[in-house]
């Protein structure tokens, strides 16, 4: 058993803290109502199975998780993905590359939207090697890869021994295939989460540093870097509590609440489908077990377009996305 395997049972799930005003009250005080805009991104979580046990994972994904999206649900996803309001299909996990039907799934999705994204931890992609990378290239799939730190020891502490060097080699291979190159349409983006209980730096500045350092040291190129704070759910919440950082971190997020960020929040334009076909307002609500609009709805029951007044379900973890510049 992995040491993190039963952590969630030990400490419970997200709860309100006396020191932090409930998120819904903060919205109310500011006179803000969080409603869906017209969702243009359909995010599909293929399951929680992953080869890594990252300490900052909000989903508690790992080798111990066996949940995987079935073929029937995947076919139900196609029906929704074909709706013209979606311009992006965002496939995530766990490690979606471990799903035996991933390439079939992507091939079916590809004609349905202008952009199809695969979120990769890079290490499974390394195992699958050239055959999988070639198919992703041929389908024109955008790859969004996790790369939390430019420091090997820090990255490995967060994601597992050897993950950093493996990720570097995989990025180089993707570059050789045309991903991330200026003259190529094959988009390669990176995601860098802070390596602990602190807020991320300016995304723009961090992107410049990553571009400079990855190019200098390993001749790696990529298109965009996204940086956002770790969400206090799942395994990251367990770590926060065990390390005595939970209260301070929640206060830090709440103190950084920026009312101007609410208008552009990611959850306003995204629909999140879980491995079992149930819908959530975002991936973080999926981790928190809060269904879309707090009503358990299966993808087969979804009626598009959503009503304009569709209220987004919230929890205190939402302070993560409203901190500073916000998660858009």
């Amino acid at each position: 058993m992995h040491p993190h395997e039963n952590d969630l049972n030990d400490v419970g799930q997200s709860d309100s803290l006396p020191a932090v005003e409930p998120f819904y009250q903060t919205l109310k005080k500011q006179g803000l109502i969080l409603t869906k805009s017209r969702p243009t991104i359909l995010q599909v979580n293929t399951g929680f199975l992953c080869n890594q046990v990252c300490r900052h994972c909000h989903l508690d994904a790992g080798p111990h998780r066996k949940e995987l999206m079935g073929r029937e649900t995947m076919e139900q996803v196609f029906a929704i993905a074909a709706h013209p309001q979606f311009d992006t299909i965002d496939v995530t996990g766990g490690a979606p590359e471990l799903h035996p039907d991933l390439l079939w799934f992507l091939a079916q999705l590809r004609p349905l939207a202008p952009k199809v994204i695969l979120r990769s931890n890079l290490t499974v992609l390394a195992e699958k090697g050239t055959p999988m990378m070639t198919q992703l290239k041929e389908l024109g799939i955008t790859i969004v890869a996790s790369m939390p730190s430019l420091n090997e020891a820090q990255a490995d502490t967060l994601r597992g021994q050897g993950v950093f060097s493996n990720s570097i080699e995989t990025l180089r291979q993707l570059n050789r295939m045309g991903y991330g190159q200026a003259e190529s349409d094959l988009e390669l983006d990176l995601v860098a989460n802070p390596a602990g209980a602190f807020l991320p730096p300016s995304q723009c500045e961090l992107e410049q540093r990553f571009k400079k350092r990855l190019q200098q040291k390993w001749r790696i190129k990529f298109n965009n870097l996204y940086s956002f704070a770790n969400v206090p759910l799942g395994r990251f919440q367990v770590w926060l509590r065990r390390s005595g950082n939970y209260t301070d971190y929640m206060q830090k997020l709440a103190n950084a609440f920026n009312p101007a960020s609410v208008e552009g929040l990611m959850c306003r334009t995204i629909l999140s489908v879980a491995w079992d076909g149930f819908l959530y307002d975002c991936d973080f609500n999926q981790a928190a077990g809060i269904h879309m609009g707090k009503r358990k709805t299966h993808i087969t029951e979804l009626e598009l377009p959503l009503k304009p007044e569709h209220k987004i379900a919230t929890g205190d973890h939402c302070y993560t996305c409203t901190a500073g510049a916000g998660f858009t």
Binding site: S149, P194, P201
Partner: peptide, 13 residues
């Protein structure tokens, strides 16, 4: 220490 981490420096730097 906190400021450095939040400005994007890592522990090696």
């Amino acid at each position: 220490t906190r400021a450095c981490l939040e400005k994007g420096s890592n522990t090696a730097e």
